[in-house]
Design a protein around this nucleic acid. Sequence first.
DNA 1: TAAAGTACGTACAATATAGTAACTATCGAT
DNA 2: ATCGATAGTTACTATATTGTACGTACTTTA
Lengths: 116, 116
Amino acid sequence: MTAPHATSCPMDSILRLLMGPWTSYILWILQSEGPLRFGALKRKVPGISAKVLTERLRLLEEAGVIFRDYKPTIPPQVTYGPADRGKELAEVFKTLNAIGRRWAEEDKMEKAGKAA
Amino acid sequence: MTAPHATSCPMDSILRLLMGPWTSYILWILQSEGPLRFGALKRKVPGISAKVLTERLRLLEEAGVIFRDYKPTIPPQVTYGPADRGKELAEVFKTLNAIGRRWAEEDKMEKAGKAA
DNA sequence: TAAAGTACGTACAATATAGTAACTATCGAT
DNA sequence: ATCGATAGTTACTATATTGTACGTACTTTA
């Protein structure tokens, strides 16, 4: 009874997956830079902690958005990259990026106009 | 230095706007059911509190995703509905919904297969 | 006089999330 | 023998967000 905000809408589960801090950025990097090892990925996301990065990667993997390739060498090598579902999302990301960029432009224009 | 997760990617601001509990559902309702008054909208989102609904509506309005029409009658009538930017997002929502639905289907199939 | 409805705002508590730091195992190098 | 690297995990703390309950201003209804 704590968090009943059931939405019964499939989009919501995707948004909920992507929403936390870092998440979309992580996915964006994996999509644009291809498969990366944990340490390399962490270095690409400055400021993130290992804990949160692990957590996010687990969620994304569970959702089938990224793959995880674990090689039990010593030291272990774990590589992450976009899976099929991640590539599907990439399309939506592109659209959202375009929209976001345009909105930012519009906001800037409007502000400039107001300043007159 | 508390939350530095700067992403420098325009999509992120949109995701951050939509991500809280209820938010996408509210927008979805306004898109599919057209303009609604505060009370009517609240009844469509069972479980949400007036406080959070107000907060979400303010954010969406500030982003230009919905409009707010205030009529200072007694009692006041405040109507919310999708604005131009909201209609833009509707396209993305449709795509995300389709993807989400398909993923749910696939997951169900896979689970059924595993049960054998 | 009191209750109820509208559209909120505010204060406070509860909860969820994120951050920090230290710890794990193993090996090679120093 | 200790350090450092890899890829985390665990415990604990700090912060942010949510939820709950009540207050507001005004009018109508009982």
